[in-house]
Amino acid sequence: MILASAPDLLVVGEAADGADAVPAVRTHRPDVVLMDVRMPRVDGLAATAAVTALDGAPRVVVLTTFGLDEYVFRALEAGASGFLLKDTPPRDLVEAVRVVARGDAMLSPGVTRALVERFAASAQDGRRAAALARLEPLTDREREVLVAVGRGLSNAEVGRSLFMSEATVKTHVSRLLLKLGCSNRVQVAILAHDAGLLESR
């Protein structure tokens, strides 16, 4: 009801649980999927991994009751573009779908920092070495954009902070995703944190 009330959004299908998610995505080809974390048969984590592995995969937003639910972190690693709490106000839920559909992660800077810090808490040395190795092909400018994305900035905010047009920022972000083998901005932010690039921020 909430999503259908927005004139620019169309609800094309629903799935009863994670097991039904992949067939529903194949049938309806949505741009964005809202995925519950805890579901019978197949949970949201497994369903997110399966959906994001499809050709032309939609962006996945994970819904959870708890802001620091361990399943959410694993779902983000599986390719989700962000998460929302189930008590998110209707207006914010609709806007989050729009943001993710545009290609941005819908996490606030504070939430992004909390997520990446939680990810990097274990095996930090090994993760840092691996992250630094992945960053070697980047240019200096791409590293600057990487840090800005890691801080949770939108494309417009990155452009203002680095004196670039939003179109140029989008080009840099697309190159970052390709070079780093990341599927979304959240994974780029995690990589920047693992590499130690956000510690002085």
Rank of each mutant, 00 (worst) to 15 (best):
A129C: 12
P30T: 05
V11I: 07
P40A: 07
E166G: 08
N184T: 05
D140A: 15
G18C: 14
T27Q: 15
A101L: 06
L180D: 00
V37K: 00
P137E: 11
M39H: 05
L63N: 04
V158N: 03
R29W: 10
V111L: 06
M39V: 08
G82M: 00
G181R: 03
V25N: 04
V111E: 09
R91M: 09
P30F: 07
R59I: 01
V173C: 02
E166K: 15
L107E: 00
V111Q: 06
G152T: 03
S108D: 13
D31I: 07
A133Q: 15
V111M: 09
S183P: 01
G18L: 03
K179W: 08
D8Y: 13
G126E: 10
R128W: 03
P137W: 12
E95C: 12
G44A: 08
V12N: 14
Y71P: 10
R201G: 12
V11A: 07
E14N: 08
P90H: 13
R143G: 04
D43C: 12
V149W: 03
S154Y: 06
G44W: 01
S5E: 14
L10T: 10
T27Y: 11
S183G: 12
A133D: 14
A101F: 03
G126F: 11
R74C: 11
P7H: 03
T168M: 08
L115A: 07
L45V: 11
T168F: 11
R29A: 11
P40E: 07
R127D: 01
F163Y: 14
E199T: 10
V186C: 01
L9N: 04
D55H: 01
E136K: 09
